[in-house]
């Protein structure tokens, strides 16, 4: 099984890979095959999401059955899930009721409020950062953040001179650009190597050592 799964990963990976580089006019079959494989992958990814949700139900149902600590919350989770899923299956997700009640009534407020709570946490962390990390990176981190805070705000009479008109754009478009590009290249290199390792079956995240 271990070898078989590796062969499958390599084979389909190479087929998808060929679809990128072979010209469609010369190899239409390969390019079409890439599309077919990707559509299959889209379907299977959706199924995997369903399996994950099913697993979530199983876990919390077990908690409720065993009456563990916090099982009330699990029961709420299961109930809300079943209710939403039932409503979504009946009404479909694009129904206005689903939008208003589920999205605008539950999902969006909770997520946005959680995001709002982050304001306090971020400020708290930034204030106490230099107490523990007073090195160059930390100092430049705080200074840059301060510059951006100042440059992003305005005064009643308009932009803050120099800061908003010159320093902030220069920091975001020059200084931060160099670091961001370096990080992006590093991420891309890591992604490239990870993909190659998977295609060479050196990494097998699908299972098997």
């Amino acid at each position: 099984m271990r070898v078989f799964t590796a062969v499958i990963a390599i084979a389909f990976g190479l087929l998808v890979l060929l679809g990128y580089f072979l010209p469609p006019t010369l190899f239409p079959t390969v390019v079409d095959l890439q599309t077919v494989l990707l559509n299959w992958a889209v379907i299977l990814t959706g199924v995997a999401a369903l399996v994950g949700i099913f697993n979530l139900i199983i876990v919390h149902t077990d908690k409720v059955r065993r009456a563990e600590k916090g099982s009330v919350y699990s029961a709420l989770l299961v109930l809300s899930m079943l209710f939403t899923f039932a409503a979504g299956m009946l009404l479909r997700p694009d129904h206005v009721a689903m939008q208003r009640v589920v999205l605008s009534g539950i999902i969006l407020p909770v997520e946005a409020a959680l995001m709002g709570l982050l304001v306090v946490s971020l400020l708290y962390a930034a204030i106490r950062l230099l107490r523990r990390r007073a090195d160059a990176m930390g100092i430049f981190f705080i200074l840059t953040a301060v510059v951006i805070f100042l440059g992003s705000a305005t005064l009643p009479f308009g932009d803050i001179p120099v800061i908003s008109t010159w320093i902030r754009p220069w920091v975001t478009q020059v200084l931060a650009l160099g670091g961001a590009r370096g990080i992006l290249i590093g991420v891309a290199l890591g992604t490239l190597m990870t993909g190659l390792r998977v295609l060479f079956a050196m990494d097998r995240p699908y299972g098997g050592k």
């Binding site: 999401a49 369903l50 699990s74 079943l82 209710f83 979504g88 539950i106």
Partner: peptide, 17 residues
């Protein structure tokens, strides 16, 4: 918890439809 349940149920419905 309610948010997680509602979001996951909604996602399941979205995935299916």
């Amino acid at each position: 918890y309610v948010f997680v349940g509602a979001a996951s149920g909604y996602v399941a419905a979205v995935v299916f439809w």
